[in-house]
Amino acid sequence: MYGWIWRHLPGPLVVKIIEALVLVAIVISLLLFVVFPWVAPLLPWNSVDVPTDVNTVE
């Protein structure tokens, strides 16, 4: 798959490297700003129980 993407990027090597870095930045941005916030409420570790009385030893 990565080879297919690399072969289809236009331009010489330097331009391909820049284009590949831009594509990686786009994928990371989509994950951070769209996918992870959408999935976060569905994950089980959102509800954390913290004791309110810190002086109690269990």
Rank of each mutant, 00 (worst) to 15 (best):
W45P: 01
V54G: 02
K16L: 02
I28G: 00
S29M: 13
I5K: 10
I26S: 04
A20T: 11
T52P: 02
A25L: 10
V39N: 00
T52S: 12
L30I: 14
T56E: 15
V39M: 03
W45E: 10
F33L: 10
L32P: 00
A20C: 10
V14L: 09
V35F: 01
G3R: 12
P44H: 05
D53C: 09
P41Y: 02
R7M: 07
W4Y: 12
P41I: 00
N55L: 12
I17Y: 02
V24A: 14
G3Y: 06
V48A: 09
N55T: 15
I17L: 13
L23K: 14
L42T: 02
T52V: 10
P10N: 07
D49A: 14
W4I: 12
I18E: 04
I5E: 08
A20Y: 09
L23E: 10
L21V: 10
L32R: 10
L31D: 04
M1Q: 06
L31K: 06
V15G: 00
H8P: 01
E58A: 14
L32F: 07
H8F: 09
P10F: 03
D53W: 06
A40C: 03
L42N: 03
N55D: 14
L9D: 02
I5V: 15
V24R: 10
P12H: 10
P10H: 06
A25R: 07
V50K: 08
P37A: 01
G3I: 05
V35L: 15
L23D: 06
V14W: 05
I28S: 05
A40W: 03
V48W: 08
N55H: 14
F33A: 03
V24Q: 11
V54K: 08
L13W: 08
F36A: 06
G11Y: 04
I5Q: 07
I18H: 04
W4T: 13
N55Y: 13
L9C: 06
V27H: 04
P51W: 07
V34D: 00
A40P: 01
T56Q: 15
K16P: 01
T52K: 12
L23V: 09
A20W: 05
R7W: 05
V15S: 08
P12S: 08
V57C: 09
V39I: 15
R7F: 06
P12I: 03
W4S: 12
Y2R: 12
E19S: 13
I18C: 05
A25E: 07
I17R: 13
G11A: 04
Y2T: 10
V57K: 14
L13F: 08
L42S: 05
V35Q: 00
Y2N: 14
V34G: 02
P41M: 01
V22R: 13
L9P: 00
L42Q: 06
R7Y: 07
V14S: 08
W6G: 02
H8A: 11
S29P: 03
L31E: 05
E19V: 02
V57H: 13
W45A: 11
L43F: 02
I17K: 13
